[in-house]
Design a binder for these strands. Sequence first.
DNA 1: CTCATTACATTACACTTGTAATGGAGGTGG
DNA 2: CCACCTCCATTACAAGTGTAATGTAATGAG
Lengths: 190, 190
Amino acid sequence: MRERWMPDARRTAVADAVGRLLMRGHGTFPGMREIAAEAGVTTGALQHHFSTKDDMLLFALEHHCRRCADRLRARSGTGARSPRQVLSAIVIELLPLDEERAAETSVAKAFVSRATTDPGFAAHYRAQREILLDLLGRQFERAGVPDPSAAATILSQVIDGMRTDCLLLGPDAVQVDAVLDRLLNHRDTA
Amino acid sequence: MRERWMPDARRTAVADAVGRLLMRGHGTFPGMREIAAEAGVTTGALQHHFSTKDDMLLFALEHHCRRCADRLRARSGTGARSPRQVLSAIVIELLPLDEERAAETSVAKAFVSRATTDPGFAAHYRAQREILLDLLGRQFERAGVPDPSAAATILSQVIDGMRTDCLLLGPDAVQVDAVLDRLLNHRDTA
DNA sequence: CTCATTACATTACACTTGTAATGGAGGTGG
DNA sequence: CCACCTCCATTACAAGTGTAATGTAATGAG
């Protein structure tokens, strides 16, 4: 072998192609030939690198989830910013405001339907959700709100709704600050 | 003609069949023969009652949206209950906690993907959203929260996330009271 | 009665789907 | 040189897709 590559650059290229097709796509999963054309390869190459179509889709899901999770961790890592600033950055990072994030959003939404029946996809949904809840919960904890994990759960659900609204109605449909106001300025009803 | 029927009982039966298939379904839209089998008819009958498949899916979407909106209006109509009680009832009415509501949720989620490209489906998403925002906003107004329409938008987005979580993770993943606490007990940051 | 219409059932068709099978180019080890 | 492997391109195929076309039983009008 000539060199140790990063784990399969071709596979990630195909995964990106799937994301692009799903983003500007007709809702349903694209066909093999369409994916091959978008990725600039042939269906034979696809078959060589992926055992089956579902294997390919699952890899595409993992790929986009990992990229997104990495960016989220980078956003929530540095220390000098307030919990509110970090939370705002995380939320905005998850909104489909450019091509890459729109692709990730479309991928995530497309795979939710599969997750209702296919346990492999459901496992990834749970895993990605756990990562997000952990990041959010940590910030709510830092902010000293009464029930951090409940706040994290709620915010993650708001984000889900924001992503669909942003996808279908544009960026004006989301109000990040208003949400954080209500989640951060919450005092216990004594 | 023997009698004036309600507008096309067969069509609504087919729409219900689509909902059932989408609920317990494999994520993607079912085929014509599958729909026909579930509805107990043949594909010829489907072709007779619907001009095309998209026409049928659109009718199914309208059907489930209308049923759901009717129940929501019924929930928010009667007067003696507090805004919080009404809001809680609305939210719970939208969660997939039984077969009918699970079918409606699956239908709604399945059609969001189509809405990104097909303007007909997008229009219905906007319309259904307006109805919900109106109902929610009225209750927040009654409750006297600072920005009722913002609260309604946020709650509608929370509901969207709750529906997916409830579908994929079960009813324990949603916390209606915690959300309403944070949206109703919000005071202006003076 | 005839004729027309409704409401389907059945069949047929063009097309797409994922995948299997085959073949070949290019490097590599012996 | 030769076998051998990876990496693909091409072709082929069986199954499934939405829909057009055709047939047909029931029903109602005139």
